[in-house]
Amino acid sequence: MSVLEMTDVRKVYRSGDIDIVALDHATLQVEHGEIVALLGPSGSGKTTLLSIAGGLLTPTEGTVVVNGNDITDHDAKELTGFRRENIGFVFQSVNLVPFLNAEENLLVVDELGGGKGDKAAKARARGLLDELGLGHRAKNMPAQLSGGERQRVAIGRALFNNPKLVLFDEPTSALDTKIGAQVMELIHSEMKARDTAAIIVTHDRRMTEYADRTVEIVDGRLGAAGLQTAAH
């Protein structure tokens, strides 16, 4: 079963009197455990596609099925629950709650799901941070962490709930090349270790080497590679 099936998705933004077609007949399938790089220039519709796949936006047309759930007609409240339970997010800029330390930024996921941040949850947060090489930073506040460390905490937060699909929107754009490569390395190994599917948005072709398959997007249209799975 595919983790994500987007079929003929169209997204039109109305801005004043003009319609902006951000996505046009986008069809994309992501298999279990597969890492897909979504490559395209600025304004090509990458974030829009990612947002629709993650239930942050609803498409104007087309269908979106995640883990067998058709979320096309979900309302805002249903989408909130859907995101919480099925998707891990790593955003481009703001990824951490500034008044929570690294560990708490992971535990917040537990609270959002109705958990009490009990021993098991704490142990899980610690384990993840250790795995991400941040065990010694667990009690640090986001302001005390470097950009790379912050993105690693965000990866831990995205993985905390064991989602089947994690969405990364330019996770390394704010980092220098070396740290960016390390973070991509980490993303790759974490996804593979958990057999978790991911879409990684980037406009940097070098980043595609960490993916199983690369899908190009230009002016809201996906390249042909969207349908086939690369033999990686």
Binding site: R84, F89, V94, F99
Partner: peptide, 18 residues
């Protein structure tokens, strides 16, 4: 002041109610 944190929380699935 904490609008971006609240937005992040909503994005990762925090119900507005919470």
């Amino acid at each position: 002041q904490k609008a971006s944190a609240l937005t992040l929380l909503r994005a990762i699935g925090a119900p507005a109610k919470l």
